[in-house]
Design a protein around this nucleic acid. Structure first.
Lengths: 336, 336
DNA sequence: TTGTTCGATGTTACCGGACACATGGAACGA
DNA sequence: TCGTTCCATGTGTCCGGTAACATCGAACAA
């Protein structure tokens, strides 16, 4: 049993055929006689041959790997996403390599460049700053699928979630539960049309649809996109003393941090204040109290994104497509 | 600005030098005159040249990528680990590709094979089943560093956590807080010397050290390594009605699931029962109640693992080394 | 002046596959 | 019997870099 240094020629010699026949057997390309095939397979087994991905890649121009760039792998939401993407990619015969962007425009640009450099056949980019990339995405012609975020310019395939409709439904759920002073927690600045803005708009739309006038004082921006940032925001909300009895939060992780902050100040969920999140990460069902949320079919999203990348790899010239994942409202203790 | 099809020869032609000089500039290999270097750099900028990783890899035999294989990326602990490994690898000029093993022996074997096939220069394997691999790890000679788990046969470099000592300290902390009937939650079967067994042993050792006779009825095996499995185990513990007032759990995620199960049955933490976990994932500080736990310096672990893999890539023949991460006990609400 | 040395740069071959095309023999029709 | 067709397999080349070695000119010593 040799150690990785067996080449195709070695196998060919062992099997008494030409290297090309070995290649044909491996890739199942053209018809090979059963006899030759079996001799080759035996030789492969015997020698422990493994194809050299670099060589194949160099010649064929394909690596069989698609990149997945997310802000942070440590975040529960992205971890969940990654799991599903890996599964979906497997079904298409692709391998997934995960990148981190740090939720920065520079990180996203770097991930795109890196993805090309490492010969990934395509990239699924869970972008948050794609709009602000300067120059506006230099990498035309390279298969990129945006996940989660939309691309106003329509340059990319993308799979998005029902940001507005989902948040609106969440807000309505709070209203249905009897909440009358519903606050919202969002992030970033609202000048740009980011995920934050879209979800905030969903909140407003729902209130207005029910004849409630949105109170600007009830809009809270997280101090930072971290556990601590969410927690301190929760404290701030508790201290604001604005008679808030319902809270719409743009993500489950932040919602949990906020609930923790509320708890720090003695505010009880759902007795004093009902809270609903967005994402339905697994932790949400376990948290105390368990968190009501919007579930944007993760598996569907991942499968669609992979499907789109694979299609684009096959046909780089096709017009970009857009899909929105279906969602459902999950009712749990936090809004009981 | 061409699109990724610029080769080194193109750059060379543009700069009026030979491809080799371009290569030398890029890799900073031998002395190149400042004049030539600048012309080459200008040509690279102008043409938008990017090295073809596949070609470089094929010729040099190195990819600059190290693999990180973990049971599931969706798990908070492994997500955290991945974050730190990515950071540490960056400092050594390496890129990280993440694999999933599913915590299965077959998955781990596949990850090793895959890692070689994809030309990763080395692999950091967060293994749980490495001992049961048959044949006992076929991939000698390939740089593999085990993370978290030990390797009894001493075949691999590994970075482990203080499983026994950490759990013992956790148990002692409960005793110090006044607990008298301390149960333990572990996983898998205890016949093999897995992480579960080691942590369980730490629990026993601590009890015996304090003159307490371990009661076998106070040993609970999680129903499954999932949120639901942990939760139902928590319910089971509550229903057991064994006068338990302290609980040592082998991981934070499972501890949270268990606390959720306790809560389902009306058991209050820490009033009725104190709970301590292991890992100190970020969520533990946010959970309600916040979870006391053992913190096995994640950053240190990741940095060490990367350091080991880099060293092994440099010298495959060096004798395997072993390191144990330092730990601290973090006291929070769950044991207050 | 001429030979030596040394640093900068060019030349050659090769890494390990896969594509395009060439070849050769069996099967078949006329 | 001979030419055609077709299928299985082999040959040559190239993918885009880089290691090893060759070369060339300037600086220097004798």
């Amino acid at each position: 049993m040799n150690r990785g240094k067996v080449t195709m020629s070695d196998v060919a010699r062992l099997a008494g055929v030409s290297p090309m026949t070995v290649s044909n057997v491996i890739n199942d390309r053209v018809r090979v006689s059963d006899q030759a095939r079996e001799r080759v397979l035996a030789a492969i087994r015997e020698s422990g041959y493994q194809v050299n991905a670099a060589a194949r890649n160099l010649r064929s121009g394909r690596s069989g790997v698609i990149g997945l760039a997310v802000p942070q792998v440590g975040n529960a939401y992205f971890g969940l996403l990654a799991t599903h993407v890996i599964e979906a990619a497997q079904q298409h015969g692709y391998h997934v390599a995960i990148e981190q962007t740090g939720a920065l425009a520079t990180g996203e640009a770097a991930a795109i460049a890196q993805s090309r450099r490492l010969q990934f056949d395509g990239l699924i980019l869970s972008a948050v700053e794609i709009e602000s990339l300067v120059p506006p995405v230099p990498e035309q012609g390279y298969p990129i699928v945006l996940l989660g975020e939309q691309d106003r310019a329509g340059r990319f395939d993308h799979v998005t979630v029902a940001n507005e409709a989902g948040t609106a439904a969440a807000t309505e759920h709070l209203i249905d539960q009897g909440c009358e002073r519903i606050a919202v927690v969002t992030g970033g600045d609202l000048d740009r049309l980011t995920m934050f803005t879209r979800r905030y708009n969903g909140y407003r739309t729902a209130l207005e649809g029910r004849g409630i006038d949105p109170d600007p004082r009830l809009r809270f921006i997280v101090d930072a996109l971290s556990w601590e940032g969410a927690r301190s925001t929760g404290r701030r909300i508790a201290e604001a003393d604005l008679g808030i009895d319902g809270l719409v939060v743009f993500s489950d992780t932040v919602a949990m941090g906020v609930m923790r902050g509320l708890r720090d100040r003695g505010v009880s969920v759902p007795d004093d204040m009902r809270v609903i999140g967005f994402d339905d990460i697994p932790e949400s069902a376990v948290f105390i109290p368990s968190l009501s949320t919007v579930n944007p079919d993760h598996r569907w999203k991942a499968a669609k994104a992979v499907e789109l990348v694979v299609a684009r790899i096959a046909d780089p010239a096709a017009p970009p497509r857009e899909f929105t994942a279906p969602f459902t409202i999950v009712e749990r203790e936090s809004t009981a």
